[in-house]
């Protein structure tokens, strides 16, 4: 109850006036009701999507595993380890890994290093915009237990409290070879049908949301934005 109160106080304190419900008057004198949170975002909760029948799902999982589309979102110092993957030396394309510019088209989200609270907010929004079979790779020890920022006032410690993580890569920072190995183990996981993070997120949605809201004090967006 107390934390609930606290949360409400915070929401009042960090209210963004641009997101308030209001009436604007168009150049023609027409009155328009504007509710940015409703107009820009959709508030529906995520759904659990049942997998297809066993044989078909096995084939689809194989296809998904062999074409991993990675969201180009670098969060920490690990983001500098991702670009070499596309260059001649490491060349992740030959393993079916491709970089995509938009969360909607991607299936793999690499959290590349420490996540400050500010970045966590963006990362959650990006994660929720990705479509259902989606996988998360946590890169570096910062995502596992906070790493060298374990006692920092501004970086999270455990990534799996905020979004379901399929693979962790230990190291500070892991080299691109380690990321390639992570892709291989993620492929194995997907093919076995164990990588079901999106459904897990939908099932335990309230728990994840409570954790996220505990950290992000100025929560000025809907609970689920796609």
């Amino acid at each position: 109850m107390e934390s609930q109160n606290n949360n409400n106080n915070n929401q009042e304190k960090f209210r963004d006036p641009n997101l308030d419900k209001r009436t604007v008057i168009s150049p023609d004198g027409q009155q328009i009701e504007v509710d940015p949170l409703q107009d820009y975002f959709e508030q529906a909760r995520p759904q659990v999507h049942k997998p297809a029948s066993k044989v078909i799902e096995k084939f689809l999982n194989w296809a998904r595993a062999e074409s991993l589309w990675v969201l180009g979102f670098g969060t920490g110092c690990g983001s500098i380890e991702i670009p070499p993957l596309t260059t001649p030396r490491f060349d992740a394309y030959r393993f079916g890994v491709a970089m995509r510019p938009t969360p909607r088209q991607s299936s793999v989200f690499i959290i590349s290093g420490y996540l400050s609270v500010k970045t966590l907010k963006r990362a959650i929004r990006s994660y929720e915009q990705m479509q259902n079979p989606k996988y998360v790779i946590g890169l570096g020890s910062c995502t596992i237990n906070g790493g060298m920022y374990w006692d920092s006032y501004n970086t999270i410690n455990r990534l799996d409290y905020y979004m379901p993580v399929d693979n962790y890569v230990a190291g500070c920072m892991p080299r691109p070879e380690a990321i390639l190995a992570a892709f291989e183990s993620l492929k194995k996981r997907i093919k076995e049908g164990r990588a079901d993070g999106a459904n897990k997120y939908a099932e335990h949605f309230d728990w994840y949301k409570a954790n996220q809201k505990k950290v992000i004090k100025d929560w000025n967006m809907p609970d689920y934005n796609w």
């Binding site: 906070g146 006692d151 006032y153 970086t155 999270i156 455990r158 409290y161």
Partner: peptide, 9 residues
């Protein structure tokens, strides 16, 4: 603060 807020492992 970090221990109270960020779920230490």
């Amino acid at each position: 603060y970090s221990e109270d807020t960020y779920f230490p492992r």
